[in-house]
Design a protein around this nucleic acid. Structure first.
Lengths: 146, 146
DNA sequence: GTGAGAATTGGTATTATTCCAATCTCTCTC
DNA sequence: GAGAGAGATTGGAATAATACCAATTCTCAC
């Protein structure tokens, strides 16, 4: 996650570490995702980014997101029939989708639970990712995330 | 799951049991989903249904699917960025999405695993559904599903 | 059988995302 | 530090899945 005053240089470093060019567009897209613990859609990211970079295009936002996902700096969250969301939390975690508010909450997953889930797979199945999503109702915004 | 010779009467019964009108369209949509252990998309279902009912419209297929999902006769499977798929397997199970072939395999889930997953939720979170999806590679069609 | 409510239909609208070709901007080399 | 080439950005148009709508048709209870 981003420290409150992480600056452009640090963003550049993150990108360079992944062997991608630290363009201004990528930096600002990464910045808006990191600076808020929510799960914005591409459109929301586009809106936030435009305030500091009014000339950016939606296509670029999609390109940047694809790059950032490919190099593991952010993750995608897929909820049914809804636009893809993006998540800065790279730790093992599940998502809880609140049907009432539409908010998405991160749920910590112990690493042994992850291992156990992989253990469920019959031989011959080799998973490189797992997605665990709950849906239901959360009591009044349990801890301020979305 | 459907017994090989389940007939129209049985399909009607299933629908009536859910308090929905057993219209011919709903019966045939349910039938094509039950008769093959795969995870077809709405478009695929539309194509299969048209062979026995050429006048059906895609809108009706969507309507029927929505109804069948709502009354719990089938389930939706959501894979990232891909069209929604429909699954006749109502037992607790996970999905394995083979990146290579695009096939979707059902993975049995012991009920205690399900309970355990629910146990991961902090107090205040009340889930009414869980979706667990693996992605990776499966060795040459492990058991003929998709 | 008949009427009221429910379902189906085809067409159109919406929305997320991708594609494309043209332009621009880095980065690297000299 | 100038130029070349790769890579990135842009706006607009295309695509694809799904939702919506008004008109017609069907189903069930009486």
């Amino acid at each position: 996650m981003l420290s409150p005053n992480e600056n452009h240089a640090a963003l550049s470093e993150r990108l360079k570490a992944c062997d991608v060019r630290p363009t201004p567009q990528r930096k600002v897209v990464l910045k808006v995702i990191l600076e808020k613990r929510d799960h914005p859609t591409a459109d929301e990211i586009f809106a936030r980014v435009k305030s500091s970079m009014p000339t950016i295009s939606l296509a670029t936002v999609y390109n940047c997101l694809e790059t950032l996902v490919a190099c593991g700096l952010i993750r995608q969250v897929h909820l049914e029939r809804a636009p893809t969301r993006y998540c800065p939390n790279l730790h093992a975690h599940a998502h809880f989708h609140d049907d009432t508010t539409g908010q998405v909450h991160d749920i910590d997953l112990p690493t042994d639970t992850m291992k156990q889930l992989h253990g469920l797979l019959p031989t011959g199945f080799d998973a490189n990712s797992v997605e665990l999503t709950f849906r239901g109702r959360a009591a009044h915004n349990p801890h301020g995330t979305n």
